[in-house]
Amino acid sequence: MCGIVGLFLKDPAQRPHLGALFAPMLVEMTERGPDSAGIAVYGDAAPADGRRVVLSHADPAHDWPALAEGLSELVGGGVGLHVIDTHAMLTVPGPDWAPLADWLATAHPDVAVVSVGDRLAIFKEVGSPASVLDRFGIAGMAGTHAIGHTRMATESAVTTAGSHPFNTGPDLCLVHNGSLSNHNRVRMRLRRHAGARFATDNDSEVAAAYLTWRLEAGDTLEQALEAALRDLDGFFTFCVGTRDGFAVLRDPIACKPAVLAETDAWVAMASEYRALAGLPGVETARVWEPEPAQVYTWRIP
């Protein structure tokens, strides 16, 4: 139960200002979710044939260089490290992530993988949205789109791992306001038949993993979301990011709030209009509430 914001920049000239435009939107959603906050930023692509990996550790003084060193040995060098508060953003060369994930889980079991992708970086922490934005310097970040979440935990713990956005496949992230009513069986099905691994017992992670499964099976983002309408039950508003896409979906009853606004320069969504009210040009934007069970997507051309 939470607040959601998403911003997708159509106008390339705006991209250096993504974080600056986005941060105040998330702060507006503080009352909806004071427990924790998370932000997904789609920035520059990782170096060719590599990926961007964000890790977190409860201790801000964690020995990240040692971990980067270990990774470097595995991939033959070229690992980049940038530490921001409790998170470490790494660039890791090489095409195959799975063995590295296994190594991490074994060699550094206390380190959490926050996101893996080419352009995606997720930052999330327990605490107020303003403090989380500040700790990670989100306002200074550039990129094409960003998705954020403020959380009031319902049935799972208030932890960093339980915070949104959830990243379950390369460059995919999902935030959710609502409550799924059949996530336990979906989780089991994804575990058994899609090899999905789950870090939490959060229903939103199941929704993210479901979309990853559909996308890996060859669905377009639109098809994956249509399928989600058939297979996921309950009340939900999702905002989804992919490497080059941005999507919004509400369940067929659509009780959880959502509002969209679009101009030639950007598309923005939020749980409440107040999060959009400060965007440049919002006065002349098309403003509407997404219809129940209708898939809305945008793509970087």
């Binding site: 139960m1 939470c2 607040g3 009352e31 909806r32 979710g33 009031m152 319902t154 306001n177 609502g178 409550s179 009340f235 009780c255 959880k256 709030p257």
Partner: peptide, 14 residues
């Protein structure tokens, strides 16, 4: 069975 103008704890707070 549901209130006409709120669902869930975030809305309930308001």
């Amino acid at each position: 069975c549901r209130h006409p103008d709120w669902t869930g704890p975030d809305d309930l707070a308001i």
